[in-house]
């Protein structure tokens, strides 16, 4: 529709008003002796901010408690002004919150805040990621021995890797357990978040060896390449056993959707779970 139609002009005015950028719309709204045009418009402006605030609150409950009311308000006001919603779904509204907290002059002085927000977003990503069947330890056993060295792994879509230099998962856990959070501490940690078989989101911290293995498998390395990589970190004699037990653990946790050896894909379907 042309930019000059009355409808488009009016809608532009209304959006400017909602975003707090001007009230040229007011003369085009009817008021009466009970409720003025301004008051009527305010209902919409308040609802706009309140709705977005609720989304931040729902998506980031632990961050909200960590910050306390005043800082939470400061964050909410800043974020709403800085990041109008560009997505039809409110599910994505806070996607840019970690980046905002990392850049904003005040919050960027406390980088653990952005990291805590990032952790909560990854929990949400794990929660509603795509459904896929998972591979089991049996599938691994059924793989012919001669194909082991070519083994590739595809991970479940819910798997999220959270590498952080702050103790924010400990902070998250403390607040969740209604205990005082530890003071912010710089420490390198790697966590994996995923959705388990009961569709509940879980996370666990992983060792640096698992981190190396994950990294290699994710970039498409086969088992033989991964084995070469880990030999630098474990005794050569222990490497096969380490690899096998780690793989079995991942399978048990439901991290793996597909094992393949280049020659064949073990029994698993690459298709999403069948929907009725």
């Amino acid at each position: 529709m042309s930019d000059r139609t009355t409808l488009r002009i009016r809608q532009k005015m209304m959006m400017r008003f909602l975003l707090g950028n001007g009230d040229e719309i007011a003369p085009h709204i009817k008021g009466d002796d009970k409720v003025s045009a301004q008051d009527r418009l305010s209902i919409y402006k308040n609802a706009y901010r309140l709705r977005l605030r609720e989304v931040i609150d729902t998506d980031h409950p632990i961050l909200g408690i960590y910050l306390g009311d005043d800082l939470f308000d400061k964050m909410v006001d800043g974020y709403i002004d800085h990041n109008p919603s560009h997505n039809r779904s409110l599910r994505q509204f806070c996607d840019a919150l970690p980046a905002y907290l990392k850049e904003e002059p005040f919050f960027s002085q406390h980088l653990q805040i952005s990291e805590l927000a990032r952790f909560e977003r990854l929990l949400l990503s794990a929660f509603d990621a795509e459904d896929r069947k998972i591979a089991t330890q049996d599938d691994l056993q059924q793989l012919p021995t001669e194909e082991w060295l070519d083994l590739n792994i595809r991970f479940h879509p819910s798997l999220q890797i959270f590498t952080t230099s702050w103790n924010v998962v400990e902070t998250w856990q403390a607040i969740k357990g209604e205990t005082p959070p530890p003071p912010p501490l710089e420490q390198n940690n790697c966590w994996v978040l995923w959705r388990n078989n009961e569709r509940l989101t879980e996370f666990r911290s992983i060792t640096s060896l698992e981190q190396i293995m994950l990294h290699c498998f994710l970039r498409g390395d086969s088992l033989s390449v991964v084995a070469d990589q880990i030999i630098e970190h474990v005794e050569e004699a222990l490497a096969p056993q380490t690899l096998l037990s780690t793989l079995n653990l991942w399978l048990e946790l439901g991290w793996v959707q597909q094992l393949s050896s280049g020659k064949q894909v073990t029994n698993l379907e690459a298709m999403p779970n069948k929907q009725p």
Binding site: Q11, K12, L18, L19, Y44, Y48, P84, S85, H86
Partner: peptide, 8 residues
């Protein structure tokens, strides 16, 4: 409007 959603 213009890619921004009021969610209202």
């Amino acid at each position: 409007l213009e890619g921004i959603n009021s969610h209202d």
